[in-house]
Computed example of a mutant assay.
Amino acid sequence: MTLLDLLGRRWMLLVLWELRAEPLGFRALQGVCNRMSSTVADLAALGERWRGAAQGVDDLAVLLAGDRIGAGVFESGRLLHGSRGGFGELGYVGPARGGQGLSGLAALARAWGGEAVRSAAPTSLSEMCHNSPDDLTAEMVFAAAADGDHVALKILDRLTTSMARVIASLSILLNPALVVIGGAVAESADAITPDLTARLSTYTSTPPLVAVSRLATLSSRSEPSGTL
């Protein structure tokens, strides 16, 4: 996707969102859009609340978790931006994740899968990537786990713990009713959602519901989740 195309999608979505309830004049609409944050995570949050898993939910976080982690957050029906548009930047979660920084599900799956291939562990991942760790994809890891590969299943368990810590931190700070996982591996995240939901209660007394995004086009094609 070109930068122009992405910027066009951003403004079109913002305009449609602001016009959903009542007509606005040009100056009023311009003022609203100028105040809007331009992160892809915010766009994903708008999309999920408009047409996705979060329709009708006023308190939610949409967590883009492909290569990097970032969040778009609604509180009481209002998209939160912060004073400089940086609300939802999750740099603080790095230490809580054992030094994993802002790496998302896809990045961690590739890294941990690559480590397994390099170590010559008995795993189908080696065959899938032709013994080339650099060619291993997150989708290969999820596919191997679905086939019962022991190493890949261990990686999914580590991914579940990592994501549980991130979502729990959001829950403690913001107490959303729903967290939607989006990004490049959203469809594959179904594999960890049941264990992730169960594990959340070990980190927070107010665990949110967890859903996986079905609006893959915008979120997966627009990563990473930083400001445009």
Rank of each mutant, 00 (worst) to 15 (best):
M1V: 13
L4Y: 14
D5L: 12
D5M: 13
L7Q: 14
G8A: 11
W11K: 14
M12I: 14
L13T: 13
W17H: 14
E18V: 09
L19D: 02
R20M: 08
R20H: 09
L29V: 05
V32T: 15
C33M: 11
N34L: 12
V40P: 09
A41L: 04
A44N: 02
A44T: 01
A45K: 04
A45T: 04
L46P: 08
A53P: 11
A54D: 08
L63E: 02
L63H: 04
L64W: 00
A65K: 00
A65M: 05
A65G: 02
R68C: 04
A71W: 00
G77K: 08
L79V: 05
L80C: 12
L80R: 11
S83Y: 15
L90G: 00
L90F: 03
G91A: 02
G91D: 05
G91E: 07
Y92W: 15
Q100S: 03
L102D: 00
G104I: 00
A106K: 00
A107V: 07
A109G: 01
R110D: 06
W112L: 07
G113H: 05
G114Y: 04
A116E: 03
V117Y: 08
R118C: 12
R118L: 12
P122A: 03
S124M: 11
S124C: 07
M128N: 10
S132P: 15
D134K: 15
D134H: 12
D135A: 15
D135M: 15
L136G: 07
L136Y: 10
A138N: 02
A138E: 02
E139W: 13
M140V: 10
M140I: 12
V141F: 03
A143N: 13
A144M: 05
A146I: 09
D147M: 13
H150K: 12
I155H: 01
I155T: 03
L156N: 01
L159R: 01
S162R: 03
S162I: 00
S162G: 06
M163T: 10
M163Y: 08
I167Y: 07
S169C: 12
S169V: 12
L174T: 11
L174E: 11
A177S: 13
L178S: 07
V179Q: 05
A184T: 03
A184P: 03
S188G: 11
I192G: 06
T197E: 11
A198G: 10
S201R: 13
T202D: 13
S205F: 13
L209Q: 14
L209N: 13
A211P: 10
R214W: 14
A216P: 14
L218P: 11
S219L: 08
S219V: 12
S220Y: 07
T227H: 06
T227L: 05
